[in-house]
């Protein structure tokens, strides 16, 4: 057995959390949290994109893992998913940034 401390391995990716020392003293929040409608809708979209062959769950994970560490821990679970889904659909040219910006502007301007 090597003497290294796996909980402090500098080579690990930041999502690779097993045994990581800095969380060992953090208590687990065991309180029940109901999912919001936003959470459910993001989850449903992920499933639809998977079922239609547009984006695999492995691609979702890759996109989540690509979120910088500070953001990764700041964003909620389904906020990370939105980041990843957008990133994947942009990479695959299913959508473009210009289309997203236009849709955001339309929503702003439309008072929604």
């Amino acid at each position: 057995m090597s003497g290294s401390e796996p909980g402090q391995n500098p080579k690990r990716a930041h999502h690779d959390l097993g045994g990581v020392a800095k969380f060992l003293c953090e208590r687990v929040d065991t309180a029940p949290y109901a999912l919001t409608l936003f959470d459910r809708r993001v989850d449903a979209l992920r499933q639809i994109l998977g079922a239609s062959g547009i984006m695999r769950v492995d691609e979702l994970r890759r996109g989540i893992e690509a979120i910088p560490e500070v953001e990764y821990h700041r964003l909620s679970y389904y906020q990370r998913w939105v980041r990843s889904i957008v990133d994947n659909l942009l990479r695959k040219r299913i959508i473009t940034a210009a289309e997203l910006w236009a849709a955001l502007a339309a929503r702003d301007g439309g008072g929604q």
Binding site: M1, N9, K11, R12, A13, D16, G18, D58, R62, E65
Partner: peptide, 20 residues
């Protein structure tokens, strides 16, 4: 092996078992 240190990677082998 640590592919994630060499560029974009998606690895399902947890860090804590590598080399073990």
């Amino acid at each position: 092996d640590w592919p994630e240190t060499r560029g974009e990677a998606h690895i399902r082998t947890p860090h804590y078992v590598r080399g073990r």
